[in-house]
């Protein structure tokens, strides 16, 4: 599959897209001030491990697919590993050195050269990072 197909697949059939009411989950809202992307990220952390991670909300194809891929990749990782993964993703977006194999499918956003789309790809990560940093 080419990059575009991967993005479209995660957009049309996003994984882990569900709202979590349970108190076991920490919720963090993330939105783009210049547009209307608006997502909630839910993470259940137990013994410094990400036991479950989901998202819900309304956003563009890049943000939704990015959230889908992110939740898929972060699930069952330790909080430290999760933060390491997020750091790698951030480095990729900012054209710094990063480890490709950790990012898996998330490398499809490597070429979001248009800066506003870069913000879209980063959107779910911003919320996940906040939650994980509080639980390190």
């Amino acid at each position: 599959m080419d990059k575009r197909e991967i993005i479209l697949q995660h957009y049309s059939k996003p994984q882990n897209k569900k709202r979590m009411e349970s108190e076991e989950y920490t919720k963090e809202n993330t939105r783009n001030s210049s547009c209307i992307d608006n997502l909630d990220i839910y993470i259940k952390i137990k013994d410094s491990y990400i036991e479950d991670i989901t998202f819900d909300g309304e956003a563009c194809a890049i943000s939704i697919s990015s959230a889908s891929i992110m939740t898929k990749n972060l699930n069952k990782k330790s909080v430290r590993e999760g933060l390491e993964y997020i750091k790698n993703f951030e480095n990729m977006l900012n054209e710094k050195e990063y480890e490709q194999n950790i990012l898996k499918e998330a490398i499809v956003y490597e070429n979001t050269k248009n800066t506003s789309r870069k913000t879209c790809a980063w959107l779910p990560y911003d919320a996940a990072k906040k939650i994980l940093e509080k639980n390190i």
């Binding site: 547009c35 209307i36 309304e58 956003a59 563009c60 194809a61 248009n114």
Partner: peptide
């Protein structure tokens, strides 16, 4: 299709429209 995605598509053809609220 999310409005912003339509606006990005149109932008590829140098059409300037606004998406959002």
């Amino acid at each position: 299709i999310f409005s912003q995605d339509v606006a990005y598509y149109l932008n590829k053809y140098n059409v300037c429209v606004r998406a959002g609220n």
